[in-house]
């Protein structure tokens, strides 16, 4: 029985690597003549034989990090409430709501945003079309919050009960316990939550496709319309298989993959540096 589980685990791990290998394989024409790196800095102008994905890389990074920046404080606050500050019945309620939110399909968020959020942003913030980085980030912030809250709560609650009793015995308030015991102890899980949240924000296609505007210019402000790598893949996938447009999709996929991997490794190392020394 144990062997089966082991096989399953190895299979999953290998699959992730296989995807990377396959993308390299399919995108090989791009590497052979060194086009890959020029794609990373060029703009997208198929009419002029320019198939660069630079604007989309910038779009993806801006939208996902802004979403994370908006969502992180709210999620952490919610997690504080749900993991100790609120009275028991309210904790249960908050968590139940968060889990419910996690189950709502992204298309619903996108759809609601088009009719409620976009006109609001258009009239009061941007004067443009209302389809821009800010709008997409706001929707994505709501989308990734439940994932982060669940991780944060698990991290904060995962602290050894004996420590909690010890802090209580020392006369610590609930807030002090959270800040000086639970938060430092739950740090690794909280970082995992951030990674998951960022991954979801980066990988989400539908919300950015629906509300980010998808323009091909390099965004210069947060009220500029932008296209993410994922939305770009969705928009270009219909191009002719043999065309350069289609080949450039693999560059998008690779950039997404490598970027996410870099973020994950970076954050993991950060945790290791922090906790590794005192354990």
């Amino acid at each position: 029985m144990g062997v089966l589980f082991q096989l399953a685990a190895y299979g999953c791990g290998l699959l992730t690597i296989a995807v990377l290998v396959m993308m390299f394989q399919l995108g090989r024409p791009l590497f052979v003549d060194g086009q890959f790196f020029s794609l990373l800095s060029q703009v997208w102008q198929p009419g002029q034989q320019l198939y660069g994905i630079y604007p989309m890389i910038i779009g993806s990074i801006r939208i996902s990090f802004l979403a994370l920046a908006l969502s992180f404080p709210v999620s952490l606050g919610t997690a504080f409430l749900a993991a100790g500050l609120a009275p028991r019945p309210m904790q249960r309620w908050v968590l139940a709501m968060v889990r419910l939110m996690a189950g709502i399909p992204t298309v619903v968020y996108g759809f609601v945003a088009i009719f409620l959020l976009v006109p609001l942003v258009r009239e009061h913030v941007s004067r443009g079309s209302g389809l821009n980085i800010l709008t997409a980030s706001l929707v994505l912030a709501v989308l990734i919050a439940p994932t982060m809250v669940v991780f944060f709560v698990n991290g904060l609650r995962g602290v050894d009960q004996s420590y909690c009793r010890a802090t209580d015995a020392l006369g610590a308030t609930a807030v002090q316990r959270l800040l000086y015991l639970q938060l430092p102890q739950g740090w690794p899980t909280i970082v995992s939550g951030v990674i998951m949240g960022l991954g979801r924000a980066m990988g989400d296609t539908l919300v950015s496709l629906m509300v980010a505007g998808n323009s091909i210019g390099v965004p210069t402000s947060i009220v500029d319309s932008a296209r993410t790598l994922t939305a770009h893949i969705a928009l270009v996938i219909a191009a002719d298989f043999a065309s350069m447009e289609f080949a450039s999709i693999f560059a998008c996929g690779l950039v997404l993959y490598l970027f996410t991997m870099a973020v994950v490794i970076g954050l993991r190392m950060l945790v290791h540096l922090r906790t590794g020394s005192d354990r």
């Binding site: 088009i114 006109p119 209302g130 323009s215 091909i216 210019g217 296209r227």
Partner: peptide, 19 residues
């Protein structure tokens, strides 16, 4: 380059009806 891009005739209609 600043043009917004939508994915179908239906989506275009929704976008214009709302903007």
């Amino acid at each position: 380059k600043k043009a917004n891009v939508v994915v179908s005739n239906g989506a275009m209609k929704t976008a214009i009806a709302n903007d």
